[in-house]
């Protein structure tokens, strides 16, 4: 059993998610393109880990493979010490949920908020639908008056709150965040980041976040994995990032480019 023991922050809590030797290739033969190249990482329970990199570095591909939207991968994914089956089952989705990047695309245009939130409850056989819906709407800062709204009546921030509510209503343990604020304005981004932070504390959640925005990732996560060309080239704590302690030249370049504009030489 190869769970890499060297946890950067030395957190000794139980492991929520362990990904080992994940390889994902698109296409075959001469046109084959390695999107994810031997990636391994672990997430302790209650931890927030961020994968960061530029477009095409494979960070979103990892998320899609984790949730089973892409089943063509090699390597093992363990959730709570059990290897997850390639065909994800209900039990998996009951405990692992995801929030998508674009709240304008991730909500069904013809479904009322009420219906969006009731559906996961129905699928997983929960009781007390109405109370749970009211409760989660309050938890994401919307309130029960939003029950009968349609997505097109909501602002971007409100939609993302509904998407977060949908993911959390069945009380999962691990929440995957795919650039949850990159489609939003900065002030709305602040709202959503605050909400995510506060929900994580209140509900004892584990986060795996993917983003291209270093400031956003280090704000929310304690640990960051820098990705480039399908590999995690460096794992750092948020403290390291803030202090600019990076070993790899690429990471240093990325750090520097993320702190505003200085003419490239």
């Amino acid at each position: 059993m190869s769970a890499p023991a060297a946890n950067a922050t030395g957190a000794a809590q139980e492991t929520a998610l362990a990904v080992s030797h994940l390889n994902i290739t698109f296409g075959s033969g001469a046109a084959a393109m390695t999107a994810v190249d031997d990636v391994s990482f672990t997430l302790g329970h209650g931890e927030a880990f961020g994968l960061i990199g530029e477009s095409g570095c494979g960070k979103s591909t990892i998320l899609r493979a984790l949730v089973g939207l892409n089943r063509d991968y090699e390597g093992t994914i363990r959730f709570r010490d059990t290897v997850v089956p390639r065909q994800r089952d209900k039990n998996f989705f009951r405990r692992v949920q995801m929030v998508f990047q674009d709240p304008y695309a991730s909500l069904h245009p013809r479904k009322m908020v009420q219906y969006v939130l009731a559906e996961p409850l129905r699928i997983h056989g929960f009781d007390r639908h109405q109370e749970r819906i009211d409760e989660i709407l309050s938890a994401v800062g919307l309130g029960p008056s939003f029950r009968y709204r349609f997505p097109h009546e909501l602002s971007g921030g409100q939609r993302q709150r509904v998407a977060i509510a949908r993911a959390l209503i069945i009380e999962p343990e691990l929440l995957l965040l795919d650039e949850p604020t990159s489609a939003l304005d900065v002030s709305v981004q602040a709202e959503i980041l605050n909400l995510l932070k506060q929900l994580r504390r209140a509900r004892d959640l584990t986060y795996l976040m993917v983003s291209h925005d270093l400031a956003v990732v280090t704000h929310l996560c304690e640990r960051v994995g820098m990705m480039s060309e399908g590999r995690i080239i460096e794992e750092m704590s948020a403290e390291d990032v803030r202090a600019g302690r990076a070993a790899e030249p690429y990471t240093r370049e990325f750090l520097e480019a993320s702190t505003g504009y200085r003419p490239a030489s």
Partner: peptide, 26 residues
């Protein structure tokens, strides 16, 4: 291919439920 269909898949919905409940209304 849209995110909202991916989102219901990730809720654990069956193909029948997705087709009848989410694709057909669109």
């Amino acid at each position: 291919k849209s995110d909202y269909i991916a989102a219901v898949r990730l809720q654990g919905a069956s193909p029948l439920r997705i087709i009848l409940g989410h694709v057909v209304p669109m």
